[in-house]
């Protein structure tokens, strides 16, 4: 009987909320896998996961945090959520550091009498928040995804604050020397997966994807679909956030050097660290589950981030070639 009840619960847990923050690791050089593993051993006794192909990727064990607070909503409906959220940190290419926080949300049934469950109930379901009272999925997602003006956190469930805190914790580790080759702003990538209107067709699918670059550093991804394995969606979001950060960061550096005269064909000095540390890290879709690759393709088609990236890399290589020619010319003269 209990098993059946759980199954019914799982059926209803089709909303996923989360946030990824991405930045440059606070170290003078790329970390080796062993160093990265030590950095991300955030839970004693639980190992980190390491992958070396196609790019070095190390991810910490999941951390569980209990929450009991009002859920966000656009309508202002204040419904309490109780449960746990999961967070993890990862390092890609020894250089790009990410913190991710996510949770599945189970909405209360209308008419059902909500009964406060003991914590053991919630601890047995990591990464799931149960909402007491009626709240529509759209209302919840709209409230969660709404741009927070100027980073002012509200009293509601604030995954961003947890995310920022975890990234800080990793970045201030004594294993990092704090001598960054250049400064790069962190991006905040907020995402939500809502149940699909078309009903469950059995196979995992995602329809209706919208990706918006909101403020300078805030991105919002909203998806509808039905995916049994919510963690695979988190993986997709991490991958998108990673490449969006890479593109944003290189773009900023290139913009800065384009408006300044480079003088005699010399390579603008700002480009050097980008070439050293970032250009080789572009590997879109490397860790995205097959069922979700169409989402990548869809975002790609509309915002064209790979085309933009190729364009940027081409420009940087041209600058490199020009500076080489200029040097040769000076040598001959």
């Amino acid at each position: 009987m209990a098993g059946l009840a759980d199954l019914a619960d799982d059926e209803r847990c089709r909303i996923l909320l989360g946030e990824v923050r991405t930045g440059l690791s606070a170290h003078s050089r790329a970390l080796a896998d062993t160093e990265a593993a030590a950095l991300l051993s955030l839970r004693p006794g639980v190992g980190v996961r390491v992958a070396t192909r196609p790019a070095a990727w190390v991810v910490s064990p999941d951390l569980t945090l209990g929450v009991h607070c009002p859920m966000p909503s656009r309508s202002g409906a204040r419904r309490d959520g109780i449960g746990t959220i999961l967070s993890r940190a990862s390092l890609t290419g020894g250089r790009m550091v990410q913190a991710t926080v996510h949770t599945g949300v189970v909405l209360g049934r209308s008419g059902a009498v909500d009964r406060r469950q003991p914590w053991a109930h919630h601890l047995a379901r990591p990464g799931r928040v149960e909402v007491a009272g009626r709240l529509r999925a759209d209302d919840l997602a709209d409230g969660f995804l709404a741009a927070v003006p100027d980073g002012v956190p509200g009293p509601d469930l604030d995954l961003g604050a947890v995310c920022g805190r975890l990234l800080d914790q990793v970045q201030e580790s004594p294993l990092l020397d704090q001598r960054l080759p250049f400064r790069a702003p962190r991006t905040r990538f907020r995402f939500a997966l809502l149940p699909c209107d078309h009903g469950a067709s059995g196979a995992a699918h995602v329809c209706r994807v919208s990706f918006v670059v909101e403020e300078e550093m805030v991105r919002v991804l909203r998806m509808s679909g039905s995916v049994a394995d919510l963690v695979s969606v988190v993986g997709l979001c991490e991958d998108l956030a990673l490449h969006d950060w890479l593109l944003t960061t290189v773009q900023r550096v290139v913009e800065g050097s384009r408006v300044r005269p480079s003088g005699g064909g010399r390579l603008p000095h700002q480009l050097r660290p980008v070439i050293d540390h970032l250009l080789h890290l572009w590997m879109p879709g490397a860790r995205v589950a097959d069922a979700l690759l169409p989402v990548w393709a869809g975002v790609e088609q509309r915002s064209g981030i790979s085309r933009q990236w190729e364009n940027l890399v081409g420009w940087i290589r041209d600058q490199l070639a020009l500076s080489l020619l200029a040097d040769l010319g000076r040598g001959a003269g």
Partner: peptide
């Protein structure tokens, strides 16, 4: 204060 200033030094020149 340490946490904030370290984060800012990471993001800002």
């Amino acid at each position: 204060c340490v946490r904030l200033l370290r984060r800012l030094a990471e993001e800002f020149d």
